[in-house]
Amino acid sequence: MRSFSYLSAPDVETALRVIADGEGVKFLGGGTNLVDLMREGIERPATVVDITRLPLTGIEELPGGGVRVGALVRNSRLAADLLIRTRYPVLAQAVLHGASAQLRNMATVGGNLLQRTRCLYFYDGAAACNKRAPGSGCDAIGGFSRGGAILGASEHCVAAHPSDMAVALAMLDAVVEVESVRGVRRIPIADFHRLPGDTPHIETALAADELITAVELPPVPVAANSRYRKVRDRASYAFALVSVAAALNVEDGVVTEARLALGGVGTKPWRATEAERALLGAPATEDAFRRAAEAELAAAVAGPQNAFKIELARRTIVATLRRLLTEGSAA
């Protein structure tokens, strides 16, 4: 790991000032992704500002039924919170399906939003990767791309977004609150993560001098009936091949409200708006679920190694909606 200077920020103001004034400054939260990337030589900050002592660790209920989650709330605390577990079971479940208990005790909500891809070629300094070294090419294309994205990829990058939590946040229309010396911004989650296009190294809408301070969950009554389903290569402690965050309201056999987001398949946490549109007003049947999944996956593009994800995503969407219908919420 390259040497760096370290500073523990006593308050938000200091943290923002240091990052505004410095070059190559990175905020350190739980470290579960950043430290690993630094050890691999992929991230090489000159200065690391520890933000874990900042007072951004609250989970508060908002007037109107939403919840505000501090950026430094650790994953395990978020998943354990009873408000989250009952109001947004999909979020608690998504978090619990990520990483391991040890990592969840360290990782923060803000850091999870910035988690970087697990693409094998991104992680290997000897390989060409437009995300790691802009303009160097993409060795994943034509290489081991079983984990690669089928939605939102470009000819420059096929790397899938690895987060579970962010998939649930995408489904919930969360809002990311960020702050810099220039002021506070509120970024809808749909705009927070970017598609790779021809700039795959720019992954989020967060500016270089901004700090994530909180995530706001709007009131989403349908989320009370929600679930997260993760499909992976072993029973635990592995990244998603496909994951589905889903919420469903059915009245008299007809879908009155549906929310769906996908993980493991998109270059960003993938809100399945086409599927949602197809579900709305449709009969709550397996056929309709399948048609909705197909509507979303019509745009999917795959190579020989990840073509199975299209079928797997279709089946996992159907299975998750079926389970919501028959067994109800994960709460």
Binding site: Y6, L28, G30, G31, T32, V35, D36, V48, D50, S76, S100, A101, Q102, L103, N105, M106
Partner: peptide, 9 residues
């Protein structure tokens, strides 16, 4: 609380 000390500066 259990943590992975390898990722903890």
């Amino acid at each position: 609380e259990r943590i992975n000390s390898c990722l903890a500066p």
